[in-house]
Design a protein around this nucleic acid. Sequence first.
RNA 1: GCGCCAGUAGCUCAGUGGAUAGAGUGCUUGCCUCCGGAGCAAGAUGUCACAGGUUCAAAUCCUGUCUGGCGCGCCA
Length: 579
Amino acid sequence: MSKGRTPMTSNSCYPLDALREEVSAQLRAAGIKEEDLRIEYPPPGIDAALAFPCFRLSQKEKKAPALIAQEIAEKIKIGVLGLLPVAQGPYVNFSINPEPYDRLTLACIDEKGAHYGGEEKNEKTIIIEYSSPNIAKPMSVGHLRTTIIGQVLKQLFRFLGYRAIGINHLGDWGTQFGKLIVAFRKWGDEERLQEAPINELLRIYVLFHQEAEKDPSLEEEGRKAFNDLEKGDAGAQKLWERFRNLTLDEIDRIYQAMGVDFEHVTGESFYEDKMQKVIDAIQAKGLSEESEGAQIVPLKEHGIKQPLLLKKRDGSSLYATRDLAAAVYRVETFHPAKILYVVGSEQKLHFQQFFKVLELLGYDPGLFVHVDFGLVNLPEGKMSTREGRVIFLESLIDEATTRAKQRLVEREFQGTPEELDQLARMVGISAIKYRDIYQPRNRSITFDWDEMLSTEGNSSVYIQYALVRMKGILRKGEVEAFIDPEAAKILVSPQEIALIRELSRFPEKVRLAAKEYEPFHVADSVYEICQAFSRFYKENPVLIASEPQRSARLTLVSATARVLENGMDILGIAKPEKM
RNA sequence: GCGCCAGUAGCUCAGUGGAUAGAGUGCUUGCCUCCGGAGCAAGAUGUCACAGGUUCAAAUCCUGUCUGGCGCGCCA
């Protein structure tokens, strides 16, 4: 840090925070009360970094807002990071004093390094449940969003100092396993199961449903088989275990390719022996009742019309029961500050119900968050594994890798075939991931190959390419991440200033992403940084510049690469050295 | 029928009650003697679904209508 010239009340050196504090202090000194202190960001056309609107005061004091702005501006003295504010209409606009602000930014990046944008370690635990594929089914692009968003959130919260625990809540329990057991006993092929387990399981599963249309008694048989399984029948148990292990081996390969990992892989079956306790607690509180032979928890009095189904007529469990057991187990085992459920928005009602029941059981409702997201549809309509209208994750990864490779060959990539393969995977898989985090989670997506694997504009490739150019410059400039804050006085071109400004915004965007559970804010900042860099790169030569520009620009490239890598690490975007 | 989500540029989408509503893509046009052009620059394109209301101020809040997606008892 450069000599503590900057007023800082927190231990954070983030420049935008410091500027905000400075501006707040100035406004307070000018007589603005705390409750009127609202600082906002002016729109892009306005040449200012922060603005204070005077409408509210105008109401209180019955004076024209422009007049108030004028008076406030006159009372304020020049700051350290900011210039003398100016009244523009009803606003008091605060502009940045580039040199000290940029010096602080560079110093902060230098000081924090790989932690720039992050926060100090805290003691809080956050649990993130994500991915959660079904055993015996291939992963389709439908599982992509939860897997990627969940993994990114985990990395994001770690970056912000949390202890983040990822849980893969496998769909390894439920009626479909009864069906699968019946199907395998009738039509299963041992050899095929060995060779391509998921394929074979999918085949007999689809077959089961076809046959069940002709012979509805199969459904009953399936339910009975699950009931056996739940009661601990040895034969059923053994088959189930095989299906589970074989599927997991296959799925693990995809996780590995995508850089996804979990602290715990505990499927629904894990909670099989933990459900009774919750059911007892619910009954003890008198929350449940019998209805049409099933056990339900009515929620009408609590604003939810549909009751939660606790137990089926035949006494076997439902997913809500297992989710309740899982929640209780996790709270007691990990004492988390939050549990995030990264699950599609079509399950919103389910989460409302089961969160409400937890609340009625005495748990803090603020503990549980459904991080929902929109569906992935195909142009032909809703995906359906049974009806064969589906794109498997494996084919998506293959296609992405193939396309990346093709492009690399076109561009005459220099390297061994192994390097080419590896790079193609880095580029291809990152492209897939980025598509799920560059926009908010909320919307449903219609799957489109070209859009999914885009390499232009706001895409992972654009970001990787920007990093590669930075690395290229640093390599040739023989600079090892050297950042000299004093470069701030030389970095005065519009592109240089704009780039540093963008770097200074990164921490705030990271924080916002965590607050809203929205990875896209990080992606957005990363993209803006790359765009600012590309503009800088175009107009400001680095290596061929003469001193002191050359060194100053090397510092800037170094700092930019640092921040960019922090962002890419959060997002799980691969960081190639060359491409 | 009820509930939730969405409707902003041709397409995919940002946008904290405040200033001239922004990106990407697509389209038109420039830019490789220069650190990698998967790039940069410029241009055109808007009834913010519609109708009311609240407010000094509404794409943003409220009500209603229309359109689309999802959900609503023994699947997850």
